[in-house]
Amino acid sequence: MAAVNHSATEETKKRHKHEGPQKHIVAYIMSLILTLIAFAAVIAGEVNTSFIIFILLMMAGLQVFVQMGFWMHMKDKGHTYAIIGILGGIFIAGTMIIMAEFWAWW
């Protein structure tokens, strides 16, 4: 076993409780509900376009938060560089999207 020890980190040495599937099923159901709300808002429609779009973007944002947090483990510790990588991408992508949405047909 000595050969293995050099690679064992603090994280792998301590015993992990193997988490059950409950947390992920909750994330799945939350994603389903958020999706349903978004579809229902469009099907019900007829209210106010900008209000519906606001609801849609809120639901998408929340769903991404749930999925990246739970399924991609971004809420777990040791994900600082993951968050920096994704936020860096979002910064550039967000600049492009704001440009296209508000300034492309100025």
Binding site: Y81, A82, G85, I86, G89, I92, A93, M96, I97, A100
Partner: peptide, 24 residues
């Protein structure tokens, strides 16, 4: 795993540009 997260950051940029083209 670390390198893959940086790749995903670049993927965000790729899809961000395609989304911006679509929005425009």
């Amino acid at each position: 795993v670390l390198g893959f997260w940086l790749f995903l950051g670049a993927e965000v940029v790729l899809f961000g540009t395609l989304f911006s083209a679509f929005l425009a």
